[in-house]
Write a protein that binds this DNA or RNA. Structure first.
Lengths: 216, 216
DNA sequence: TAGATTGTTAATCGATTAACAATC
DNA sequence: TAGATTGTTAATCGATTAACAATC
């Protein structure tokens, strides 16, 4: 086994994760005044150190005016372009349980690079429904539809037991990006990237941060 | 050199965030065979380097048998104890929209240190409903109930515009731990800890990881 | 014993922080 | 100009990785 990934890590991943937060602040300023914001001000509003914000902005390729700051609209554009969020990608969602339905209902994902074109579920009772305007289909229909629409992105919101088999189905359907809420590691072929999302990690961090704070 | 077990030391937060993942794997093994697991095996199942797993386990205070490994049940207990998850804390949830409802519906949080005792919403239409068995109350009732039940933990799942005022209400209710899904920084008094959860951060990371992979 | 694994140390790597010259 | 801010470099800090002696 290789000791580390052979890809050169160009960007700070913690930095990448902070970008959507800045984007939120900037988007709320859009169309308003002022039209320009400095890294100092953005850092204050985001609750981050100035150096961090400057480094993060630098990563996107945005350029500011010395002594002035960044044009808000231009900075929004540079961050969106860097994240590939200028045009949303068509996406599948598998598993319309509590979490899956909530994700479908959050129309705001279009602002974050995702547009749900179809949902899938193993439960025949759920098939045929439209959840928040997205039709729920049987899993067997996925490969044909995925190939036809060239869907590259998919969200995995099924129980742990079904996660691997649905991931296999994603791959068969031509998906190369999987955003997974399943609490297990997925085996996928080279070239397919899995981003695992774990809400319980945040809860763990919260508890330990509280204890550390108590001890001081 | 310094004593390790009871010293006030900052724990590796990335490590803390990995613990729930190990816990999942271990819990699925519980009551089965084998009753012992080595860091090597756990690392394989978690898709992590062995050194990482050993360091993370060390952090919890768990002790293994040289040449053998860790007792599964004991390791589960040590991780749960370290995370404060042996007994779930009573928690409030504010905002029963798509996401809030989904969180209430996921009964599994009891396994992760949280038990929802009441939900709150600004919408009078929603008040009085029981969502997944949890009663929805008007926001004004929160302080009295929070003080009476000594609720220390709360989940914030309201829109950005209401987030700060509801956070203020949490504080007034005696809450010291806020798990926030609002995409803004919250101003809270000293002693109150906010853990911000940002799903869009994962999406940003996914996109950039894909581009980095393409470039190799 | 012989093989396996822990617990720990030292080296490496990456991210954050601080500082400042350039310049609008 | 004088004040503010960028862009960047160098220093610090923390996490990850690799290695190995101790030992079951």
């Amino acid at each position: 086994m290789a000791s580390k990934s052979n890809s050169v890590r160009i960007n700070s991943l913690p930095g990448v994760r902070r970008l959507p937060f800045y984007l939120n602040i900037l988007r709320r300023m859009r169309n308003g005044e002022p039209k320009v914001i400095s890294a100092v001000t953005l850092a204050e509003e985001a609750g981050q150190a100035v150096s961090v914000v400057k480094k993060d902005i630098e990563m996107t390729g945005a350029v500011g005016k010395t002594g002035v700051g960044y044009d808000v609209a231009a900075l929004i554009g540079d961050i969106e372009r860097f994240l590939g969020w200028t045009d949303p990608y068509d996406a599948f969602l598998a598993g319309v349980g509590n979490l899956g339905s909530a994700l479908l209902g959050y129309g705001g994902f279009k602002q974050y690079g995702l547009r749900f074109v179809a949902a899938f579920d193993a439960d025949p009772e759920k098939v045929g429904e439209a959840i928040h305007g997205v039709e729920v289909m049987p899993l067997v229909k996925m490969p044909e539809l995925g190939r036809r629409l060239r869907v590259s992105t998919a969200v995995l919101a099924v129980p742990a037991e079904e996660a691997q088999s649905v991931a296999d189905l994603f791959v068969e359907s031509g998906v190369t990006r999987i955003w997974s809420f399943a609490p297990i590691p997925l085996a996928v072929p080279e070239g397919v990237i899995v981003q695992r999302e774990d809400l319980t990690a945040g809860l763990a961090e919260l508890m330990v941060r509280c204890r550390n704070a108590d001890q001081t």
